[in-house]
Design a protein around this nucleic acid. Sequence first.
RNA 1: GCCGCGGUGGCGGAACUGGUAGACGCGCUGGACUUAAAAUCCAGUUGUAGUAAUACAGUGCGGGUUCGAUUCCCGCCCGCGGCACCA
Length: 818
Amino acid sequence: MYHHQELEKKWQKRWQDSNLYRTGTDFNKAKYYVLDMFPYPSGEGLHVGHPKGYIATDILARLRLMQGYNVLHPMGWDAFGLPTENYAIKNKIHPQESTTKNIATFKRQLKVLGLAYDWSREINTTDPSYYRWTQWTFLQMWKKGLAYESFAPINWCPSCQTGLANEDLEDGKCERCGSLIEQKPMRQWVLKITDYAERLLDDLDKLPGWEKSIKEMQRNWIGRSVGAEIEFKVKSNDLSNLTATKNLRVFTTRIDTIFGCTYLVLAPEHPLLEELKDQIKNWSVVEKYLQQVKNKTDLQRTDLNKEKSGVQLEGLQAINPFNQEALPIFIADYVLNSYGTGAIMAVPAHDQRDWEFAQKYQLEIRSVIKAPKSFTAKIYKGEGELENSGKFSGLNSLQARQQLLTYLEKNKIGQKKINYKLKDWVFSRQRYWGEPIPLIHCSKCGVVSVPEEELPVRLPEVESYAPTGTGESPLAAIDDWVQTTCPKCGGSAQRETNTMPQWGGSCWYYLRYIDPHNNSVLVDKKKEKYWSPVDFYVGGAEHATRHLIYARFWHKFLYDIGAVNYDEPFLRLQHVGLIMAQDGRKMSKRWGNVINPDEIVERFGADALRVYEMFMGPFDQAISWDTNGLIGTRKFLEKVERLFANFEILGEKVVQDDEKLLRILHQTIKKVEEDIESFNFNTAISALMILVNKLTIYHQKNNLSALTIKTNQFLLQILAPFAPHLSEELWEKLGNKESIFKSSWPQYNSELIKNKTINLVIQINGKLRTTLEVSADISQEEAWKIVQDDQAIKKWLTGKKVIKNIFVPGRLLNIVIK
RNA sequence: GCCGCGGUGGCGGAACUGGUAGACGCGCUGGACUUAAAAUCCAGUUGUAGUAAUACAGUGCGGGUUCGAUUCCCGCCCGCGGCACCA
């Protein structure tokens, strides 16, 4: 037993008093930047799942510290956001006030875990000295035309009363509150992230240190598809021999199926509809359909199971530019106005959706790609040899696409086109608790930026935080804040009253840790060059398509304007697997299954919690909490403590290092070091347990330590990143004056770790029959000699013919018999 | 539907590059210590048969390659995550 409460407090105080984790400033040393995704300080405080990632980075940071690196390992708060604001509305408490309170709670909870953060670099996104630079970057984007005002319909959450970005939706619902999202035309500030789509996609290849799954999620989200835009002429029936009335562009990835196009479909919102209204003979039917579509929610509209519906635009025809065929035109809500050109060429023979539609409205289905003989289903979606395609028949899909494209471009009826699913980032929110957008509207000069030296534009005090619901932020009601003078002409003008989304401040916080108190630039260039990029970044996978795309975009922009020296912010990325409750569900107040880390630390100690969370299973996997498992790791720490307690009593005895145990020790040093680097903490701890078990057994049998004090200290050093408090205590007990984290990580002896003897596996026809303890460098001949005389093997060989021996040096001998 | 990840004892999980499947921990069983309990320590713990030595089976299912497959290939099933009328 050891008294974790006083012991842990003692060391936490000492670390703090000695500034042990203050970031080094000697730029001649190698650097290592380990970063956690900073938390949103909610009112509920932490549960045991939250710190899992922080413990992991802490272990890595401590290893790097002992290896002699300058380590940057900071923490801060992503504190703007809706829950705090909603809390303010309900309880009339200023968001700043509850934010301050929540941060204090979080910080206390993190501190009792003994995390090695450099708190002198703490940042907070709601601090004006921080958001000044968020605003500054926004202005730079605005100046480059990357931030623009849009009046297009956007996602509107009727419950949160604000516009949202595509990334903020889940299944057509608000990610925050679950309300169904509506489309609402509104004035919005939008960031042109699509300008960066290609780089965001291509540069993923520069990040071998990112998990495949997260890169895939980003690729999916960016959604690049290569195809062609083709121009059809739209003619009125009455004037079919006259010139075309309008041009209509469609986007397709399968131009090789163009001869199979038997009709065209427009999205119901397509602008051409309004333009050709007069020539559409069944306009009243069309109008009715449009009304029906309008009444559907987005969720209903995109329901894959629903039957396709649409209406033909009677009186209009489209001309296929490749064969001059006149085709009917439909509107149908299975075509989205927001993707491509909002219009498609329908090829029912080779597209599931077009096929369904054609079936319903009895349209021609014309095969233009030969299906393989083995193909039995109705719709062949694959590639192949073209048929019924004029002079292009006989080509394969790939050749056809190239030739058709050439034809398109030569005849100026279209061109190659790349489309992305990624949409520009709707960047304004009609809420209070966010960074004000630093722009001014002047009736004479238009939109004018707040001069940089006047930044930050501070959030004003308001009476009510409640959203107005009119599409205006609560800031709009603060007249003496809104009314200002135009920086350009000096005339009266109004401030922009929208605020930035929660994701704004987190786009660049990792840069600010590098230089958190700089008042003249976002980050000092020299410091940035030294510390950037982040070497290791750890956080939840739920950020794969939000924060991690936004931050990469923001960073690339900063790179383009010369503010940072490399165009990717995070070299290595690792996602944390959730800790679920014991019942297998997510830990949540709602289910009443939350485990508070404070209680665990109180009862079992921070070290036990740390070791347990790392030992539970693979780091990136979701695993259920089990307090029994935690007791196991606590017992392990007590075992370590006992080992050294007895050591003290027996300390005077002169011992020599036991060679076998010394070998295991050095193997463990290697294993622990490598496993920390690869985030396989569970196996690192398992190795430590094996070592401690062996030392304990030796200790008990011989009533003395297997190793000298000096070698025994290695054990404490490799345990220290996991269980820093106990390791410090025992380290001190052994007579060390300085912190264990000022000692150097032990070097394993690569000669020593080689096993001298091995258990040679003897197989017969691949089946294990026996093992022999032999010298590690035994030759095949020697092994064969021994094996033939072995009783266990002899009986298998009698009456059989040995065909051959397969020998894997240092491992096995397999005898193949017949 | 598409993409990614996974499926191993009662449980969490381990296994290098194709080479002893089940490390380590939890739980359980038996034992030592104790007046007793806790703690600690020892032994056992994939299944079947056997006192045992040992044998056979065994890593979601069915095939294949190989001297040898949890690992590689083909075809499925199930679970998790992401995307999704994206043309």
